[in-house]
Design a binder for these strands. Structure first.
Lengths: 341, 341
DNA sequence: CCATTTTTGATGTACGTAAATCAGATTTTT
DNA sequence: AAAAATCTGATTTACGTACATCAAAAATGG
């Protein structure tokens, strides 16, 4: 049987009340006594029964999820996953609330974070906009002892406890290698469609992509990045334009959202030329395009996993428990026609 | 607040004891009363607090993991993951025991399963050998009300509750498309190295591989399958032999274990020819080979995820709870040089 | 309609922990 | 050495469920 608080009390030769004071860092225990109890805890290998503890506390973890109010398919999917978690929340003793903030607006995000310092939830998850004011606001929360995890996009130099998202440099590198290999030894131009170079994940993907292209596929040259602001219409216009002007384009890498517009542009031009295309994020549109051959591969991060992982990590931090690292690593999914879920 | 048993009692106008009798299907409740209680449960949306219930029961889930005593890297990895789960088991109120049975031996496996009918663990996970006697033994366990999940390799036509493993047909198809695309339009022969055609996962991978090759890459022809019995030495010999005899080979698909031998053979021959190689299972050996260019892509199933998923599902079944399907889907990982974990 | 069986209610204990109260024992300060 | 402050112990209640016991009520059989 697992040792209980009673066993600690017996082993340390103190009363249950004292053990409780030590375990829950309540005041009123002399230093020597505290040490004695802590030794006993270590020696008999006591671990708190979290289920029983939460039952006793009547505790519910109140978490806040901050998501950008942006309306591309990926963010909709992320929102849906958070909602699914909310639906499950009573069963898991969690009380999850979402907070929408304007996309790409560091000031609004920082303000929202500061509001939470007063509310003091048991944990905060956010899709970070990579700016100093956001970093500082996050660090203030962390200093206040509130667990914080970033989701999808990380925050440079902050003290957030965890990042639930993919390695975007690796994602860009992978895209480059896939594109390069799929193109065989062909020479030509590669167009890159991004949302905005102001978001860290897009910057990193491009960085990885460019690095591998330069190292390994000298026959392919990257054209200046097209910034479509994750907007389908804008993406459509810009990509159509590029394809008309440059007929040396043989490959496309779409590293952000707004793929609906990209796909439309590709279909319009596909009559007279064959392009190899790698895109990010599996949505209804990209899935269809993959199946009909318009897109050759999709790189994806599973929003559901990210949300569940973020919640697990927040819970563990709130309980002072450790996490299984391998379990929380968010993987980069590569989808071809054949392995779609 | 979540409704409790007291709320049911109040809503149904019966006593706590009666509610308890209904909830735990104890005898001594009239049919009409039982219905009344069940209606109340549904209406107020009661869900049992599993943590409290287990605390009250003092319950620990005793699970048995049946793994084949085969000594390739993948099975070692699987074993290590089971051991890691065992190490965590006290914290999670589980008591996991492993049972080794000879590999590829349906009779031994069926016998082991039948032993468990007497022991009656709270759940059984097994790496299935696909044979009728194993299927029947599994079905007997299921009939006895014991949750059973298959791991890595599934069992045709059985009533197991869940399969924690990848879709092997999709894996084979994906391998074919990757190999085909990587080879550009080149024409030539493709060698396939398998463990044994008696295991379902290997059969299915080949099936998927052959299908896509035939449909989409008519320029590539598949040579008769080499069965290396997942043994490095045997694989080395057979592959070396094949490469010497047929110089039309431009691609290799290794769908089983024993890659150590394959890699050795490839390195010996690589001086005079360039091969495109797709292999299964990420191990130290295949990882090194991927990094040095001997292998071009690795398809992988994460043994840790499979083990944890199997345990989660067994627990849920034992508690009569539902599982999050998306969470339990085991994904096929595709690793290139750039996205190795 | 009484005896018997079946169904229901009332109540208590247990699981492992949290949290509170109050009394008693130490220490520290004056 | 007395007063005050600080520590420690003993005990109790609670969380939501499981499970057992005994008494009371209702339904059933003859």
């Amino acid at each position: 049987m697992r040792p209980t608080v009673h066993d600690i009390a017996a082993a340390a030769g103190v009363s249950l009340a004292t053990v409780d004071r030590v375990l829950n860092q309540r005041p009123g225990v002399r230093h020597v006594t505290r040490e004695k109890v802590e030794t006993a805890i270590r020696e008999i290998g006591y671990v708190r029964d979290v289920a029983a503890a939460n039952l006793a506390k009547g505790r519910t973890y109140s978490f806040v999820f901050i998501v950008p109010a942006s309306d591309n398919s990926f963010m909709h999917g992320l929102n849906a996953e958070v909602m699914a978690a909310v639906a499950r929340s009573p069963v898991e003793r969690t009380d999850i609330r979402t907070l929408e903030v304007p996309a790409f607006d560091p000031t609004a995000l920082a303000a929202a974070l500061d509001t939470l310092r007063i509310e003091r939830p048991a944990g905060v998850a956010l899709v970070a906009t990579d700016a100093p004011e956001v970093r500082d606001a996050v660090d203030r929360l962390v200093q206040d002892g509130i667990p914080v995890v970033t989701v999808v996009s990380d925050l440079t130099g902050s003290q957030r406890h965890h990042y639930a998202g993919v390695d975007n440099i690796a994602a860009g590198r992978t895209a480059a290698r896939l594109l390069g290999r799929f193109l065989g030894g062909a020479k030509g131009d590669v167009a890159v469609l991004a949302g905005s170079m102001l978001v860290r994940d897009h910057r990193e993907r491009l960085e990885g992509f460019a690095a591998v292209m330069a190292e390994e596929f000298p026959g392919l040259s990257i054209l200046p990045v097209i910034e479509g602001r994750d907007d389908p219409d804008m993406a459509h216009m810009l990509v159509s334009d590029a394809l008309s002007k440059r007929d040396g384009i043989i490959g496309v890498y779409s590293l952000g959202a707004g793929n609906r517009g990209l796909i439309r542009a590709l279909k319009e031009k596909s009559v007279d030329r064959a392009l190899t295309v790698i895109a990010h994020e599996l949505t209804d549109h990209t899935r269809t395009a993959l199946l009909d051959g318009t897109i050759d591969a999709i790189l994806n991060q599973d929003a559901g996993h990210e949300v569940r992982s973020a919640i697990r990590v927040l819970k563990a931090k709130a309980d002072g428990l450790s996490v299984i690292d391998a379990q929380e690593r968010i993987r980069l999914d590569i989808f071809l026609k054949d392995n779609l879920p």
